[in-house]
Design a protein around this nucleic acid. Structure first.
Lengths: 117, 117
DNA sequence: AGCGTTTGCTTGGTAGACTTAGCAACACGT
DNA sequence: ACGTGTTGCTAAGTCTACCAAGCAAACGCT
């Protein structure tokens, strides 16, 4: 059964990158400390590897983690469109300079403004 | 048993972001189509969520996937946090829902908070 | 007081991510 | 011809990410 799972594109991508790097399955397995049979299964699209496995593969192949995550469809590629409103709240929440209470207060004010218009 | 797994920082981060967004576990569960008990376990650091779960959480909380991956240590990538202050102000200025006066007021409040600490 | 709802959590179970052991086919040196 | 090493793969098992069902405590609301 030549089974082509929808996400197998990732596996083929990894395999091609590995071959371009002239690495055998076992060599890549050693570099990533992932078992070689499992790597084989990943490349054939039988399983979807966890993020940590993806990350170590990326490092071993000298790819950026983003590249491989994007290929895996885990990184809604290119700046998410995100409507404007949530962007303000998100920016506030991530600000390391503010305390939790200050964040909540700011968001309350912001929502109050939205409510008015 | 107050066990603090090494990766529980991620869980605490998610929980704080969820609470700042004023969402209950079940609300976030619905948004992410992840079961609420599992979310609870993630937030308490009992399990490490897969990349796809992380991604949907990021979307529901209006965070970039990169942000949450970085928090999970899956994206050791370069300087993640960056200067946050300009980001909040920029987001406010770009918000089309706010009037000019409202934007100025919000930024005044924000700068007041920064002044304090 | 009572009942409905909402909160977060525990329990039991399933599936799939991942491993160790091992196999068949192909290359090489003798 | 026979080793020995390499290649990728299969088989069988373990572990854990994840879900459905359900529970106790806290909240209204009447």
């Amino acid at each position: 059964m030549t089974n082509a799972e929808p996400w197998s594109a990732l596996g083929e991508f990894i395999r091609s990158q590995r071959q371009l790097a002239r690495l055998s399955l076992r060599q890549l397995a050693e570099l990533t400390s992932v078992s070689n049979p499992y790597l084989s299964q990943i490349e054939r699209g039988l399983y979807r590897p966890s993020a940590q496995v993806l990350k170590s593969i990326a490092e071993a192949l000298h790819l950026s983690a983003e590249t491989i995550y994007a290929e895996a469809g885990l990184l809604d590629q290119r700046g998410a469109e995100t409507a404007a409103s949530p962007r303000v709240e998100a920016a506030i929440r991530l600000d390391p300079e503010l305390s939790t209470e200050q964040k909540e207060a700011l968001i309350q004010v912001y929502r109050g403004f939205l409510r008015g218009r």
